[in-house]
Design a protein around this nucleic acid. Structure first.
Length: 196
DNA sequence: GACCAGGCACATC
DNA sequence: GATGTGCATGGT
């Protein structure tokens, strides 16, 4: 997956299953539109048609266009220029883009730019709050601090740890609210046994 | 046919 | 500042 593909995916996956995002990405790829330049030239209506399988296609079209405009105005659509930014600066700028919230921003930092930033998503919040470690509606930063204050700042570790959380949630926690006697109670051991 | 899925911005109080 | 609501398709 290219850097740009990851960024587009981060926006498309907002409140959406990844399987649906893959269809949208595949549409864009087939049409050779998965580059900042190509997407910048693309009209909103056509873009919306390509990303339709990912749901919320009107709002996501707007968000993708906002993001492309940001790439253009800040970096002249040059992702290498973007890559030169320090993480803290990049994070602040990304959060300034309408349609890019903390999770989308951190996904871009971790997956597209390999920065050691822990991504907090619905799965992570669910697991942490069900263990009574934090309240469900605690601030994003509180959840993030839990991991970033206790794990080595290594993008590979953050990446794998997050993948394990997603797997844990999907394997054992499909229903909402979770069943009684949920195997999540053993999630600490699960993570300890599965992390390499 | 109902319910849910790796958010976010905006309106309203 | 907290809470509620709109956005939409596809899989189970």
């Amino acid at each position: 997956m290219s850097r740009f593909e990851m960024m587009v995916g981060a926006i498309l996956t907002q409140n959406t299953a990844w399987a649906n995002v893959e269809k949208a990405i595949s549409n864009l790829k087939s049409a050779r539109l998965l580059s900042p330049g190509a997407m910048a030239k693309l009209g909103r209506k056509r873009l919306a048609k390509f990303i339709r399988p990912a749901g919320y296609y009107n709002i996501k079209t707007k968000r993708l266009k906002n993001f492309i405009f940001f790439l253009f105005s800040e970096y002249g659509l040059n992702l290498d220029k973007m890559r030169g930014e320090p993480t803290a600066v990049l994070r602040k700028k990304l959060l300034g883009v309408n349609g890019v919230g903390p999770e989308t921003c951190d996904s871009i930092l971790l997956y597209a730019f390999d920065r050691p930033v822990f991504v907090i998503d619905a799965y992570t919040k669910r697991i942490i709050s069900r263990h009574g470690i934090l309240g469900q509606s605690s601030p994003y930063e509180d959840f993030q601090g839990l991991f970033m204050d206790n794990l080595a700042h290594d993008s590979a570790i953050f990446n794998e740890y997050h993948a394990l959380i997603v797997k844990l949630a999907k394997d054992f926690c499909r229903t909402k609210p979770c069943c009684d006697g949920c195997p999540l109670d053993d999630s600490k051991n699960y993570l300890a046994n599965n992390i390499s």
